[in-house]
Design a protein around this nucleic acid. Structure first.
Length: 556
RNA sequence: UGGGGUGUCGCCAAGCGGUAAGGCAGCGGAUUCUGAUUCCGCCAUUCCCAGGUUCGAAUCCUGGCACCCCAGCCA
């Protein structure tokens, strides 16, 4: 696109950064994107990615990619690979090597020992249920664990035994000694290390104790010299613990955490747990199913990195809860593809047309522009002959004035071709139209009718002997309600029409279409070839064209 | 009912005491060999509510109300 790059929208995070820069608090900005490798990235992550990497770019700073991998049971190397692929595909570059929280396990362990030495952490033997009871409730303070006053020396020995694998999972854990009466629940002596005899995708079997998020994240940020640690709203309470940890260990750096609201999109779900359910239970073909709100799904659907970035720019960054309409996303990809996608013709639900007065056995080649408003995109050749496929819904035996397509006895323009007139039809035994017989106006190619008569409608078509058979995957919203997450069981509101497969024909130039190359099938929408099938010609509909006619209640 | 947050057009979202940006959606109309695109025009006397301060308030104060998050050895 030739338009000047859109300026990034300012937001409260950027204002904080600009202030910190102006005050001299920081001279270089450092952010990080810290996913847990327990699933694929989705459009909500794209918001965070655009924020973190966008800030690094715009303020000449850096952004780390760090896998927050402190729970080996839920994580997998496959996800760390998919995440790197998706971040790169979105067009961002992380600063230096990929980082892992697990890179810091030794240091984290050292800081845990420091807390124990300072009398600020203890090994507790309460089981999960007891710990919940001791924690109190939202309105009642908690009570101290009977193990809270164990001596430093004893705690040191116990923690060493935990590390040495001398306790069973769940038998004990390490807790920070803060305040069981704190109104902030996560400050009531939070667990900071627990026992897990699990193989870790990065550290193998080196450890049987793993640090918790709240203990790990702040220290990892500090170790990496992060200046602004940006996360979502649900971590607002955790900020107190983030600061407590850094204030109580000997570490020179204290990053500041700021929270913004996560993205919610209508008619889909955004939690990894729910997306995982859709994959595991076969409601979709996988994380890359084009109906998924994942980056990989959107990519296969035909979305581009720039359209996703533009979407993130448009929605902004605030602390307000939000539910963005699907139309906002769709408008981003339409705006881009309208400029970049070459036009082509494909008939998704074909019915045959025979032009009685067109010579048999003749094929003429019609040179047609690839883009109506961009001659620089060149042209392609369209074969035209006596028999064509047109869209079944583009013909009616009779219709009122609103129907601008082919009607018995009426005329219509074949896109890039001649004007034809429907004369009669053949029908199957069940009444289905099997063939439409037409006549054509030989003087109408590339010009108006000789007598100045106006033809109101234009329909697309393909010539039968040269057309290539193709499958078209027509995608629609995955759920039939705007907020599926609010249902008792979101699986019950999956849209049964979320994928409709049609068999039709495409113009010959499409036989060599490659995945990732977009097309506009005129009057239908934007499509791209599916990447999963090299042999068969399969197209995914990225998004339909805007259709104001379909919205009219009184259409023909 | 403890603590932490948020309330500006149907949906996002600017605004930071000087008299309500923009985008999406919608609605008119023009152009059009895509019912697309493009183009022109319309779309918050009002900012959750009620008081107060001020020459002046969406912005400051007081009091309400609504919604979201927190009681994992998840992140």
């Amino acid at each position: 696109m030739s338009e000047p790059a859109k300026t990034p929208a300012s937001n409260f995070v950027r204002q904080i950064i600009e202030r910190d820069l102006a005050d001299g608090k920081h001279s270089v900005i450092k952010t990080r994107f810290p996913p847990e490798p327990n699933g694929y990235l989705h459009i909500g992550h794209a918001k965070s990615i655009c924020l973190n990497f966008g800030i690094a770019e715009d303020y000449q700073g850096g952004c780390n990619l760090r896998f927050d991998d402190t729970n080996p049971e839920k994580e997998d190397q496959h996800y760390v690979e998919s995440i790197q692929r998706d971040v790169s595909w979105l067009g961002f570059h992380w600063d230096g090597a990929v980082r892992y929280s697990s890179d810091y396990f030794d240091q984290l362990h050292g800081y845990a020992v420091e807390l124990i030495e300072k009398g600020l952490a203890y090994v507790d033997f309460l089981n999960a249920e007891q710990m919940r009871e001791y924690r109190g409730t939202l309105t009642q303070p908690g009570r101290n664990s009977p193990h809270r006053d164990t001596t430093v020396a004893r705690n040191m020995a116990l923690f060493q035994q935990m590390r040495d694998g001398q306790f069973k999972e769940g038998e004990c854990c390490l807790r920070a000694k803060i305040d069981m009466a704190s109104p902030i629940i996560c400050m009531r002596d939070p667990v900071i290390y627990r026992i897990k005899f699990a193989e870790h995708h990065q550290t193998g079997d080196k450890w049987c104790i793993y640090p918790m998020y709240d203990f790990t994240h702040c220290i990892s940020d500090a170790l990496e010299g992060i200046t602004h640690s940006l996360c979502t709203l649900e971590f607002q309470d955790n900020r107190a613990l983030y600061d407590w940890v850094l204030d109580n260990i000997s570490i020179p750096c204290h990053p500041r955490q700021y929270e913004f609201s996560r993205l919610n999109l209508e008619y889909t779900v955004m939690s990894k747990r729910k997306l995982n359910t859709l994959v595991q239970e076969g409601f979709v073909s996988g994380w890359e199913d084009p109906r998924m709100p994942t980056i990989a799904g959107l990519r296969r659907r035909g979305y581009t990195p720039s359209a996703i970035r533009e979407f993130c720019r448009r929605i902004g960054v605030t602390k307000q809860d939000n539910v963005v309409e699907m139309a906002a996303l769709e408008s981003c990809i339409r705006d881009e593809l309208n400029e970049t996608a070459p036009r082509a013709m494909a008939v998704l639900d074909p019915v045959k047309v025979v032009i009685d007065n067109y010579p048999t056995g003749v094929l003429e080649q019609i040179e047609s522009p690839r883009h109506p408003n961009k001659p620089e995109l060149g042209s392609r050749t369209l074969p035209f002959g006596r028999e064509l496929w047109i869209e079944r819904e583009d013909f009616r035996e009779e219709a009122n004035k609103h129907f601008k397509r082919l009607v018995l006895g009426g005329e219509v323009r074949l896109r890039n071709g001649y004007v034809i007139k429907a004369e009669r039809v053949d029908k199957d035994a069940d009444g289905t139209i099997s063939c439409i017989y037409c006549s054509y106006e030989p003087e109408s190619l590339g010009r108006d009718l000789p007598d100045g008569r106006k033809v109101r409608g234009v329909i697309h078509w393909v010539e039968t002997t040269t057309a290539v058979a193709a499958h078209f995957n027509l995608y629609d919203r995955l759920f039939s309600v705007a907020n599926p997450g609010a249902e008792d069981d979101f699986r019950t509101v999956i849209n049964p029409q979320s994928l409709v497969v049609q068999q039709g024909f495409a113009e010959p130039s499409l036989a060599s279409a490659v995945a990732s190359e977009p097309y506009q099938f005129e009057r239908q929408g934007y499509f791209c070839r599916d990447c999963s099938n090299e042999q068969a010609l399969v197209f995914n509909r990225t998004v339909a064209l805007r259709d104001t006619w379909a919205k009219l209640a009184d259409k023909a």
